[in-house]
Simulated scan of single mutants.
Amino acid sequence: MKLIDESLLDALSAEAGSSDRKRKNLNYHFGDADVLQRMLNAFEPGTYVRPHKHENPAKREVFILLRGRLMMFFFDDTGRVTHRQLLDPEAGKYAVEIAPGEWHMAVSLEAGTVVYEVKDGPYDPSSDKQFAPWAPAEGTQDADVWLEKLMVDHFTDR
């Protein structure tokens, strides 16, 4: 049995907050070969998750919000925002399932945001995700500017 409780979420969020990437995951699957990848993923405001899709091989992905607030953005092949979904318990929005091949990214709106993430496996870092060619690479100054513009242009609170 693996228990997910407040102290675990607090510890994971603290690790995310002190990391350069402003996020941290804790795997529950039994290794890269597991056909069901499961993990906690802590996102702090300011983290940049480069838009990506899971297409070759096709994989579903589910984010179940455990606490905090998370905005999910979805894009077309040119980088235009097609829709967004706020995950927020106060709004009664708790989870989203992402179809294979759908461009997406997550943006933390609140410190201490943690999701339980489930994705088809196995995990192969060379083919797990295809990054959007129209979005800057993680860890660049361009990424910070791009994320800020995305939020200004497309964010609605509720």
Rank of each mutant, 00 (worst) to 15 (best):
E55V: 15
E102N: 12
Q85P: 06
A137S: 13
E138C: 11
G101W: 08
R60A: 12
P57K: 08
A99Q: 13
G121F: 06
A95D: 08
G79L: 08
W146T: 01
R38W: 03
P122T: 02
R50F: 08
A135M: 02
A58W: 03
P125R: 11
E148M: 13
M72Y: 05
D120K: 02
G139C: 04
G46R: 00
E97G: 13
I64D: 01
W146I: 04
V62T: 14
V81P: 04
R80E: 15
F74W: 07
Y48D: 04
G139T: 10
V62C: 12
L86S: 15
Q141H: 12
P133M: 08
L150C: 04
P45K: 00
R80M: 12
D124L: 10
M105E: 11
M72L: 13
H83I: 02
Q130V: 15
M151E: 10
D76L: 10
T140I: 09
K129Q: 14
E55P: 09
R67T: 09
S127P: 00
V62F: 11
E148I: 06
K53S: 04
Y123D: 02
R60C: 14
R38D: 06
F73R: 04
A137W: 13
A95K: 09
L150F: 04
E44P: 12
N56K: 14
H104T: 01
A135F: 01
R67G: 09
L147S: 07
A143K: 04
G101N: 06
L150A: 06
Y116D: 08
L66F: 03
K149V: 04
P51C: 07
D88R: 00
L87S: 00
V152F: 13
W146S: 06
A132Y: 04
